[in-house]
Simulated assay, not measured.
Amino acid sequence: MAGILDSVNQRTQLVGQNRLELLLFKLVGPQRFGINVFKVREVMPCPRLTLLPKQDKFIKGVAHIRGQTISVIDLSKATGGPEITPDENSFVIIAEYNRSVQGFLVAGVERIVTLSWQDIMPPPEGTGKSSYLTAVTEIDKEMVSILDVEKILNEISPVSTELSDDVKDESFGKSIGERVIMIADDSTVARNQVKRALEPLGLNMVLAKNGQDALDQLNALAEGCDSIDEKVALLISDIEMPEMDGYTLTAEIKSNEQLRKMPVILHTSLSGVFNNAMVEKVGAEDFIPKFHPDELATAVKKWLNKKELS
């Protein structure tokens, strides 16, 4: 597994081309799963784990890795499967989500594959709200499931969506009248986190389940208008989404005369130095790492105020 994450700089060139790389792994059984390589810091054989008193039932233990103490989550048990028993085939995927670093215990790691986001599809209808799938794809004629890691982490350690008193302002929504804020994210948990965080601003919000859904909704709303900002005041979009990622969505918006005036805030758990360059390249107005409700609400107020003053 040494070198599996080499050439990161080369991989960042895929971003903005509606492409991604998936690290394939297994839990218990033959089913394969995937995680975006850009979320992954390191892949390593499972180290010795230390148990903590009263630790969450899904936490296998903690490990001291490169000067940092990291919780290791049994990814199978956390998604309703059988517990993983660490052995010589077990690995820990060290990943960064929502400004924190976690380890995910998996039963085996396979390889990295390069795909188009167009090949990544939403979960099948009927999977239900309790599903841990955020997307699926087909590799080697087999289905690969992409887990909603934000949902898993939120169940283990719920994220606060409460705004500070000095940020709350229920009258703020009146300044944009009947116009709405659109929230695009493939994670149901993440969409609802953003929605709850912005409700104290008195905003009307509409939701989109991925980039393609957001673009379709925007084009439909723009029909008969000179500009979409007559109806949609601002878009908050995740970056990694099935069918169309947030960078491609932003580029499509900024190249469309009817849509381009609408401010776009990219709001993502993706980390890395390439983000700021990509935000500038595709023309987004702002980039906010997930998830700090005050920072997000402050950015929304900033760009809505700028729009009103322009």
Results as ranks from 00 to 15, higher is better:
S130V: 08
S310Q: 12
I70K: 01
S310M: 09
I73E: 11
W117Y: 15
G224V: 00
T114S: 15
Y97I: 02
E280F: 09
V136K: 12
Y97V: 02
A220S: 10
L22P: 00
T250M: 08
F58G: 03
D6S: 14
L221S: 10
V279H: 12
V194T: 03
L147G: 04
L52C: 07
P124N: 09
G173T: 01
H292W: 07
I35Y: 13
N256Y: 09
G177F: 04
L215T: 02
K141W: 06
D6K: 07
L75N: 09
T248I: 00
S160K: 01
D286H: 14
I228H: 04
A297M: 00
D166N: 13
A220Q: 12
E162P: 00
N192H: 13
I236S: 05
E42Y: 09
D213K: 01
T188V: 05
V194P: 00
I156G: 06
I236D: 11
I183D: 10
E230T: 02
R11W: 10
S100L: 08
N18I: 00
L27W: 07
K302E: 11
V159N: 07
K307S: 15
L49K: 09
E257V: 06
D226A: 04
I236P: 00
V149G: 07
I236Y: 08
V282G: 10
M1Y: 13
V189A: 04
L203Q: 09
I228F: 04
N210D: 15
P45C: 07
I65S: 05
D166E: 14
L153R: 04
E42F: 06
D226W: 01
L49Q: 14
Q118P: 00
I112S: 08
T69W: 06
P158A: 07
R11E: 07
E308G: 08
L259N: 06
V62D: 10
P263G: 06
D165E: 15
L105D: 13
E280T: 13
I120E: 05
R11Q: 09
T161N: 03
L259P: 01
L296I: 03
N154M: 04
I181R: 02
N89Y: 11
L296C: 10
I239H: 12
I236F: 05
D148Q: 08
E170M: 02
I176R: 04
G67D: 08
V194R: 00
G173Q: 02
S100C: 07
I4F: 11
G128N: 13
T12S: 11
I176H: 10
N154K: 03
D140N: 14
K302Y: 07
D169T: 00
K57W: 05
E280Q: 14
N36L: 04
I84L: 13
V37Q: 12
Q193V: 02
M241I: 01
L259Q: 05
K168G: 09
G126V: 02
M143A: 11
G80Q: 11
L5H: 08
L14G: 09
A277G: 15
E155Q: 12
I228E: 05
M244C: 01
M182E: 10
L75R: 04
N9D: 15
N256R: 03
A297R: 02
K301S: 11
